[in-house]
Nucleic acid binder design. Sequence first.
DNA 1: TATTGTTATACTCTATAACTATA
DNA 2: TATAGTTATAGAGTATAACAATA
Lengths: 159, 159
Amino acid sequence: MDMEERGHSEHPEALRLWLRMLTCTQLVEKQLRTQLREQFDTTLPRFDLMAQLERNPDGLKMNELSRRMMVTGGNVTGITDQLVAENLVERMDVAGDRRAYRVRLTARGRKAFDEMARQHEAWIVTAFEALSPREVESLHKLLGKVKQHHNANLKMETA
Amino acid sequence: MDMEERGHSEHPEALRLWLRMLTCTQLVEKQLRTQLREQFDTTLPRFDLMAQLERNPDGLKMNELSRRMMVTGGNVTGITDQLVAENLVERMDVAGDRRAYRVRLTARGRKAFDEMARQHEAWIVTAFEALSPREVESLHKLLGKVKQHHNANLKMETA
DNA sequence: TATTGTTATACTCTATAACTATA
DNA sequence: TATAGTTATAGAGTATAACAATA
């Protein structure tokens, strides 16, 4: 039927779960990309970067953006360049460190983002409307365990 | 902290859930890509294609692969070409339709895939080991609702 | 020396559309 | 005309590594 056919034939439960999770994420993500492109002529990474800045009105340094978006620095430079060219974000000097910038939304960027975010939220609500509030909470909690476990493992490797 | 900072400031529950789900998927997927590349010099789409064939020993037509992998036909051609060049899959003629092929694993491909699938399975089991069997089942079921709802919506649009 | 950020580059993945050949 | 598959192209998305400026 779809991606869930992937994997080894023994198909333990964790594998089945992963394939289904991947399918769901891809379904939603594909829809988001299409709609962001069609309705706002933008992309998911651009939306992500602006979303990070919306939550940090004082701006974020490039390396902070890089870490939060989980991509390498060079990519953040590229996306930021685009958004600066469209006057949606701006690079501010950081007092005391002439190497660094603080990137933040412009007034125009904030306005543009608010509009996109409203739509984005509606798309997401629709995508999960089959679940009751309790189920949404339950799913969120279970995924929290997965995430926490992953981060714990990362720390062990780094240490 | 990470991607979950994305989104509108009101952050209804569905949005929080989506951001967490996206984070989890990306964490696992990034790890899979890295390990597939380092240990087997391959990629996720190549692995996906072979996994589809492993579950269909008689092979699949190009358009069937395209649908199951959720990508367009041209891409399947490209990935198949690579795998054919490495003698991991082969294109068989379809009796009665000279336009179509049936793609299937070669003996070498099956052997290579089995090895990868074993590792892949172990990675996935590790990724979800924070969850009890009951929790895995619960997560699987909840995501099933999301998937089903999405497919139901698709059908309505098509009809 | 280490860090911040940029540049340059290359590759994977993807969609679109035009194309060939069969049906 | 419609379908199976390919080709060509363009763009998104990403990682790597070399680099400049500053700490």
